[in-house]
Amino acid sequence: MRLLAAEVRASLLELLRYPAYSIPTLLFPATLYLVVAGRSRVDPAARMVGFAAIAVLGVAFFQFGVGIAHERSRPWERYLRTLPAPPSARVLGRVLSALIFACASAGAVVLAAGAKGVALPGSLLGAFAGALLLGAVPFALLGVSIGYAVPARAAIPLANLLYLPLAYLGGLWSGPRAPPHLPAALPTRSWADLVWAAAGERAFSISALVALATWTGVFGLTAVWCYRRDEGERFS
């Protein structure tokens, strides 16, 4: 527990002291929401939850994808492996600090929406948080895959290349009434269906849940494969 607290603390301090990471991560989704959807009268709650999902997506891609790619190239990471703790302690620390950042970033969107008079009824908040968390898992795994698959210099453009296009094409920007006419099989589209349903803007779809679970499996396998390949190269 003491180790986990120290890992989370160190991870948060490091991230907070990089304004180039922390400010865009925390404020960009809320700002984007105000610019893109803040004045819209169409689907206000659904668009708010969509931008909250974009906030979580950003943390998943940048904290896991870029963060892992950056750290695994550092001798410090190698040094930490000589300490008497399993790598899982460090991974758990990273997950918890990402969760805190994701909550803060999604919370900023909710606050921005609140300032515009858009809010979810209290009874839906639990389902909303659950849907966000559910979607965070496959994208965190996709982030892990990126982090272990490519070097740090390639991870940043790759994460950028995937982040906003996936968010847009999945309909997280536009809301349920005007989603882009693109394959419904996109993982962000399944997630969007779930967060909209959690916000009471659309009926719950079991097929979206199944699709997201399938994506979770695919990204999970990819993450394991990329991790093992990297471990094999660096530590065998």
């Binding site: 490091e14 550092r74 040094y79």
Partner: peptide, 14 residues
Amino acid sequence: VGVVPQEIDLPPAL
């Protein structure tokens, strides 16, 4: 066990 590695890189922001 304690280790002083050959290549020393500390977390820059901590």
